[in-house]
Simulated assay, not measured.
Amino acid sequence: MRPHLQNLLILTIMLGFAGMEFVTRRYKRSVHATHDDTKLELAMFVSLLAVTQPLALLVTNKLCVWLIPQQQGAWADLPWWAMVAIMLVCDDMTQYWWHRLSHSPLLWPLHRAHHTAQYMSIRMTYRNNFFYYLMMPGLWIAGVLLYLGFAKVYGVYIVVKLAVILGAHSAWRWDEPLYRIRALRPVMWVLERTISTPATHWAHHALTNEDGIGHYKGNFGNLLFFWDILFGSAHITRKYPARVGLQDDLLFGQERWFTQMFYPLFQSRREHSALRFGGRAYAEASADAALPHGERTQA
Rank of each mutant, 00 (worst) to 15 (best):
L40V: 00
A206W: 03
G245M: 03
L101A: 15
R276Q: 02
M261E: 01
P264Y: 08
D36V: 00
D37H: 01
L58N: 07
A74P: 03
L110K: 09
G279D: 01
H272W: 13
L207S: 07
L250C: 02
P264L: 08
M93W: 15
D249C: 11
H35I: 08
V190A: 14
G279P: 00
H169P: 05
W66I: 04
L230F: 15
A168N: 03
I195F: 13
A234W: 03
I141H: 07
E255N: 02
G16W: 10
M124R: 12
L57C: 03
H111D: 13
F131T: 05
A299R: 08
A199R: 02
A82R: 07
H35L: 11
T297S: 10
T237N: 14
L162E: 10
F277T: 10
R256Q: 14
D175R: 08
Y132A: 14
T38M: 05
R269V: 06
L8C: 06
S273N: 07
V23T: 10
L148A: 10
C64D: 08
D175K: 12
T259P: 01
Q71I: 01
T38K: 07
K28C: 02
L250W: 01
R112H: 03
I213R: 12
R243S: 09
A171V: 05
I68P: 02
P292C: 02
K62H: 11
A163S: 11
W97C: 04
I236C: 13
P54L: 06
F226E: 04
D175N: 14
G167I: 07
A299M: 11
W140P: 05
M120C: 06
Y179M: 10
D77G: 12
M44W: 00
A18R: 02
L162T: 15
L55Y: 05
I213C: 13
H235N: 15
H114T: 03
V160T: 11
A85V: 03
L67V: 14
S273K: 04
P241Q: 09
I165F: 04
